[in-house]
């Protein structure tokens, strides 16, 4: 473990907590893409199947459980408890266009052709594009609540910090995982225009409005 990965994990946890609190406190999931939340739940489920078979550390197991519970809890709040506030008219990204190609690619490019490894690879590839429905929804509505932009900033920062972690691990341990690195770079690049808007607008107290 290194500080970059730890701060990255905490940023990821912060993002998930921000979103959960936003939905719970405002009793509304307006402006939030339920499809992205479904994809994130799928990412955690397919990645953490080794939760009980491959013990890494208490921290690792506890965080996996927290991610699973909070992401499924968010999906539950969006599609059941506060379903009436779910904006399905703007959350129209065809996620099958993500899941199918990612599923195919995970069979073609992986470290090991075993069920657990293919599911892990699927999870890594899926996570890199899972935010697309959310970014698409914001581009359709043309704006995002400030709390949602904080959520996205924390979520985008987590994988950017993981990239720093991979550089650090490469130089200190000689460790590198090309699948995770390439997918992590794609994932972080997808946030770039949002990062620009966040830093130039939200941090100056303005509402996040996409140029029409």
């Amino acid at each position: 473990m290194n500080v970059f990965r730890l701060v990255g994990d905490l940023s990821h946890l912060l993002a998930i907590i921000i979103l959960l609190l936003k939905i719970w406190k405002t009793r509304s999931c307006a402006g939030v893409s339920g499809k992205s939340q479904i994809l994130f739940s799928l990412v955690f489920i397919t990645r953490y199947l080794d939760l009980f078979t491959n013990f890494i550390s208490v921290y690792n197991s506890v965080m996996k459980i927290i991610y699973l519970v909070t992401s499924l809890g968010t999906v539950y709040l969006m599609y059941f408890k506060f379903k009436a506030t779910y904006d399905s008219n703007h959350d129209t990204f065809r996620i099958e266009f993500l899941v199918v190609p990612v599923g195919g690619l995970s069979f073609l490019v992986n470290h090991d052709f075993t069920p657990l490894e293919i599911l892990w690879t699927f999870s890594i590839y899926l996570e890199s594009v899972a935010i697309l429905p959310q970014l698409f929804m914001i581009s359709k509505t043309g704006e995002a609540e400030t709390i949602t932009s904080h959520y996205l900033f924390a979520l985008g920062s987590y994988r950017a910090l993981y990239i720093v972690n991979w550089v650090y691990r490469y130089y200190t341990e000689g460790f590198f995982d090309l699948i995770a690195i390439v997918a992590g770079c794609v994932q972080t690049i997808l946030y770039c225009d949002f990062f620009y808007l966040y830093i130039t607008k939200v941090l100056k107290g303005k509402q996040l409005k996409l140029p029409a």
């Binding site: 990965r5 080794d50 491959n54 690792n60 090991d112 490894e117 892990w120």
Partner: peptide, 10 residues
């Protein structure tokens, strides 16, 4: 390689 020790990252 990354996987034989089991993926140690979240």
């Amino acid at each position: 390689a990354a996987y034989d020790a089991g993926h140690d990252e979240l």
